[in-house]
């Protein structure tokens, strides 16, 4: 008996388990709180710095104005519609390219490729995600631009399509990698059931596996979209950046991000223009915030159907 007691004494934890439990709990709670606080902080900062801009700019004309010309000698204009449209065009274009290609590649990697091909291809795709955006922008100027100008007979290839192509390239690794994981996680019993009913491999992928993996695939596309909306350097380099209302996918465009990047370096501190750029940042923040929120809602909806 005494031996057991002695052992128990020796093994006694240096800290009361209950307190330890609380500490661990507190640690993770703090971690969670830090990210929430950071998010709130960014939001507060952007809002505070934006508010002074609206002492001189009418909020209505800011949101619906078709002209952005903060340095005009005649009348300064702060309409963000051209940038919203530009951002929309480039993003939608990128998604139109990246989503079908990404899902196709993911399906190929998860269901068609031999294990060897998969082992080589997947890391390569993931490395693609690490290429700096300057390098991609550079490729847009020297490679994609000339090709586009040849195809469409425009005098240079720095336009919305170029931006879309590059952003698609940047979004693809995320979309492929996460979609592939989602497809891999579809229980093989679904696939077996489908094949046993006389479905071909392709029917099984299209009608059972992709729908079953849809929540993951949507999440992947949303992440890709978030990347496309927020990406700055690439669009700055490849889209021509004319601050006027875009006329077509073949014309130059200037997104919210590139406007901030271009003008923030030259603007005088604490002027209306300066504050207006923060207001652009706030708009961008809200857009990405809502994209994430909507994707969350979609995810939950599908989860409910799938359970």
């Amino acid at each position: 008996m005494t031996v057991v007691a002695a052992q128990y004494n020796r093994r006694r934890p240096w800290i009361n388990p209950k307190i330890k439990e609380k500490l661990i709990h507190g640690f993770f709670f703090a971690n969670g709180m830090i990210s929430v606080l950071a998010l709130l902080g960014i939001f507060a900062l952007l809002t505070m710095t934006s508010i002074p801009a609206f002492r001189e700019i009418n909020i209505g004309s800011f949101l619906t104005g078709f002209e952005w010309n903060p340095t005009s000698y005649v009348k300064e204009q702060y309409g963000i519609v051209p940038m919203l449209v530009s951002t929309l065009m480039v993003t939608v274009g990128a998604l139109l390219i990246a989503i079908p290609l990404g899902i196709g590649t993911a399906a190929y990697l998860s269901d068609v490729a031999s294990p060897k091909v998969r082992e080589i291809a997947k890391p390569i795709v993931e490395i693609l995600a690490g290429i700096p955006s300057v390098v991609i922008g550079f490729l847009g100027i020297v490679l994609v631009g000339p090709i586009l100008s040849k195809i469409f007979h425009t005098h240079n290839g720095l336009n919305a399509i170029n931006g879309s192509v590059l952003l698609a390239v940047m979004a693809l690794p995320t979309i492929i990698s996460i979609s592939e994981d989602a497809l891999k996680n579809v229980p093989s019993s679904y696939e077996q059931a489908s094949l046993a009913l006389g479905a071909s491999k392709w029917q099984t992928i299209a009608r059972v596996k992709i729908p079953a993996a849809l929540s993951g695939i949507i999440a992947a596309c949303m992440l890709g979209m978030g990347r496309a909306v927020g990406e700055t350097m690439t669009v700055l380099m490849a889209t021509g950046c004319a601050p006027a209302m875009p006329k077509s996918m073949l014309g130059p465009v200037r997104t919210l991000t590139s406007s901030i990047a271009i003008e923030l370096g030259e603007v005088a501190y604490n002027t209306t223009h300066y504050y207006a750029l923060f207001a652009l940042g706030l708009v961008l923040f809200l857009i990405t915030f809502f994209i994430n929120m909507i994707s969350d809602i979609i995810l939950h909806k599908y989860e409910k159907v799938n359970r």
Binding site: A196, R207, V208
Partner: peptide, 23 residues
């Protein structure tokens, strides 16, 4: 074939039965 472990698709009851016809 009916498998040892039941394995309905994550679809509606109707769609499960209609699947074989549709494909």
């Amino acid at each position: 074939m009916v498998f040892q472990k039941s394995n309905p698709f994550p679809k509606s009851i109707f769609e499960n039965v209609a699947y074989g016809l549709k494909i």
